[in-house]
């Protein structure tokens, strides 16, 4: 590993310790989950089995000393290898691509009405992390995404 990698790993373990303890106290064991604290905002990433566990985890982490708010970036499933594509199904406008899974997060891009996007990750609240043909990446609400009918499927 080397000196610095060994130190960084030990530092991460120490930094994560209060959050791991908070999750364990709430009866949640999520070895995959990572946290980082900046100015009181705790960003939590990793994979959880379902949305309910994600909500419980966020509630436990919010109660940790020094944490004023939690940015929940927990994902339920990695869909990259499944090659799932959907189309932007807004009425006519472009679809906002956001920095996080929710309307409270900053808009980082726009996907055109009718554009094809790939689903990369299913988030805790049903939002998706997507990737479009222009290389844009970010979070979109499933309310504005529609399945692409499989080839040979009857046209509705």
């Amino acid at each position: 590993m080397g000196l610095f990698s060994t130190i960084a790993e030990a530092a991460q373990t120490q930094i994560q310790a209060p959050y791991t303890d908070a999750l364990n106290a709430a009866g949640i064991n999520l070895p995959d989950v990572k946290t980082s604290l900046e100015n009181g905002v705790l960003t939590v990433t990793g994979t959880v089995p379902d949305g309910e566990t994600a909500e419980k985890a966020v509630a436990a982490l919010k109660a940790t000393p020094g944490v004023t708010s939690v940015t929940n970036l927990l994902e339920v499933e990695d869909l990259t290898d499944k090659n799932i594509f959907m189309t932007v199904a807004t009425k006519s406008s472009n679809l906002n691509i956001r920095k996080g899974p929710g309307t409270e997060h900053e808009i980082v891009g726009k996907a055109e009405h009718g554009a094809k996007v790939q689903l990369i990750k299913k988030m805790f609240n049903g939002w998706y992390f997507i990737h479009d043909a222009d290389g844009q990446e970010g979070f979109c609400s499933t309310d504005y995404l529609a399945e692409i009918p499989a080839e040979g499927a009857p046209v509705q």
Binding site: G2, L3, S5, T6, A10, Q14
Partner: peptide
Amino acid sequence: KYMANTGSSSDNG
């Protein structure tokens, strides 16, 4: 050769 220790983990090489 080196042997590094962080108190909770170690590495050598």
